[in-house]
Amino acid sequence: MTISQLSHVAMEMGVILLSNGAETYRVEESMHRICLALGAQEAEIFCVPTTIIISITMDDTAPLTQTRRIHTRITDLTKVDEINHLSRKICYEAIPYDDLISEIGRINAAPSYPYVLQVLAFAFISQMFTLFFGGNLQDSCIGFVIGIATKLLMDLMGRLETNSFFINMIGGAIAALVAVTASGLGLTTQMNTIIIGSIMTLVPGLVITNAIRDIIAGDYLSGLTKGVEALLIAAAIAAGVAVPLSLLRPFWGG
């Protein structure tokens, strides 16, 4: 395998890991392992949530450095799992370059769950958390509706490439808007429970987990970045919820 092929394989796998929700230390570790297993003499990898820099040294050739900027980050843990699996497999057995590329392509192109199922998942999260925080069945049905509305609107905003801060703000605003309206119409007495249950769909659980795990691993830069991201998302949700609450409550009470 030539140095440019090696760098290509490692970079592609790193990009898939980083853009689908893996911890930073996992990306660095996996890429390092891959490079050494594929025959690099030395490999230095630097990775932050938005950039990967890789520098490889191999026998008889000049060192090669490559940089990649990550623009969009989504959450698809199956891809993380499968790439992780593949990187371990590379260490145990020799896989030809073409097979590796086609395998990476297959993993990257794997479809996620159907859209209807994702919307339903949001609805169920919202409904279950409303029950979880002490709502009754009727409250949970309002939560169900909010879940669907939040998901649909957030995806629409995502397609228009709005930043995640504003998307979460809108998500919180919808939850509060529907809950305050329902409370105003006399459909429920537990407005607070419904709002809390519905904003749980927006809570950045993966970001928090990864922030903590990155800090444990010694990646303070990435850990702090993600920690701040989680804090900002939480602040955005709170700000989004505050707007309908303060605007509508004087009219409807509650």
Binding site: T75, A121, M128, F132, L206
Partner: peptide, 15 residues
């Protein structure tokens, strides 16, 4: 409730 909600979240995370 936590179990069902986690299940739904696992679907959102595409596990």
């Amino acid at each position: 409730y936590a179990f069902i909600a986690s299940f739904a979240f696992a679907v959102v995370f595409n596990i």
